[in-house]
Computed example of a mutant assay.
Amino acid sequence: MKKKPIREIVLRTASRLFYQQGYSNTGINQIVEEAGIAKSSLYQHFRTKEDLLMAYLEDTGAQTTAALRKAADRHEQPRDRMLAIFNYLEELLKQPEFYGCRFLNIVYEMPHDNDRVRERIKVQKDTVRQLFTEILTPIQKEHLADEFYTLFEGALIGNKVHNAHWPIVSATNTLKRLL
């Protein structure tokens, strides 16, 4: 069996901890201990904790985009593609290990002036907006992309605040009415 590279072990461990307990509540010593590595090994790959956070955001961003595209690409019609994304989100929200949107969780923890992290999160969120625009363009409804993006984000926030399923149901029902 091939051993995983240390960078991957560190990133997977940090990703799990950042998501489960938050960036601020996760210390370098905990990451090192749970990854089973020497602290110097971590610093060979990530100069700072924020560098590790940036790798986490980039990695999880790619995974999120791929999952949304995969859900949409199972369908041909734009309406069905949009509904598939919202259905994917609904299934995600039902999972017991769902602790909220990884990007929103981090942005809430960041000081307002941490432009580096906020810009990385904005890139990811703009990728979702662009995906919606891309899906809606063939039916000349691209002007609704920001409205659907707001519904999508609102469902994530509503779920986190209320710890309930109704925000995604409401968002999906609104999407159906608008399309």
Rank of each mutant, 00 (worst) to 15 (best):
K70I: 01
L17E: 07
P78F: 08
K125E: 12
P167W: 10
E50S: 09
A84F: 07
I85M: 14
A38E: 07
L83R: 05
I31H: 04
A14E: 03
H162D: 07
H165M: 11
L92K: 09
K70N: 11
N114P: 10
A145S: 13
V10C: 04
N105R: 14
L11I: 02
T26F: 13
L93Y: 06
Q44H: 11
H165L: 13
L104K: 10
P96C: 01
I135H: 06
A62E: 12
N163A: 15
T172K: 08
A171W: 14
T174N: 07
D126T: 00
S170Q: 11
V128K: 08
Y88N: 04
I85H: 01
A71G: 02
Q21V: 06
V123E: 14
R16H: 09
R102S: 10
T133D: 12
A155H: 05
G22F: 13
H75Y: 15
E153V: 13
R47T: 08
T127Y: 04
N29K: 15
A62D: 11
A55W: 11
L89C: 05
T13W: 01
Y108F: 15
D113W: 04
I135G: 01
E34N: 11
E119V: 04
R120Q: 13
D126K: 00
G100T: 09
L92I: 15
E142T: 03
K122C: 12
R69H: 12
D113R: 01
F148K: 03
E97N: 06
R74Y: 07
K176S: 15
D146Q: 03
N87A: 13
Y19H: 07
L53I: 03
A72R: 10
Q44T: 09
T26G: 05
A145P: 10
I85E: 06
S40A: 05
T133H: 13
Q95W: 09
W166Y: 14
E8P: 03
S24W: 11
G154V: 06
I135P: 15
P78E: 09
A84K: 07
L104C: 02
P78Y: 04
Q124R: 04
A155L: 02
R12S: 14
A38P: 03
T65N: 06
S41I: 04
L53A: 00
H112S: 10
S24H: 11
Y56D: 00
F18Q: 00
L89M: 00
N159L: 00
Y88A: 09
L52S: 10
N29F: 15
I168F: 05
V117Q: 02
T137D: 13
S15D: 07
T150S: 10
I28S: 14
L68W: 13
G61S: 07
E8Q: 15
D59G: 02
E58I: 03
T13G: 00
P78C: 04
P5H: 12
T174F: 09
L131N: 15
G61Q: 02
V169D: 12
V161E: 14
A66F: 00
Q95V: 12
A38W: 01
K125I: 03
E50T: 14
R81N: 04
A145R: 00
L11P: 02
R120F: 13
Q95C: 09
T150A: 13
E119C: 08
F86P: 00
R81Q: 11
I168Y: 03
D59P: 02
H162A: 06
A155V: 01
L52V: 00
L179C: 13
L178R: 11
Q140W: 09
E33R: 07
L156F: 07
M54L: 14
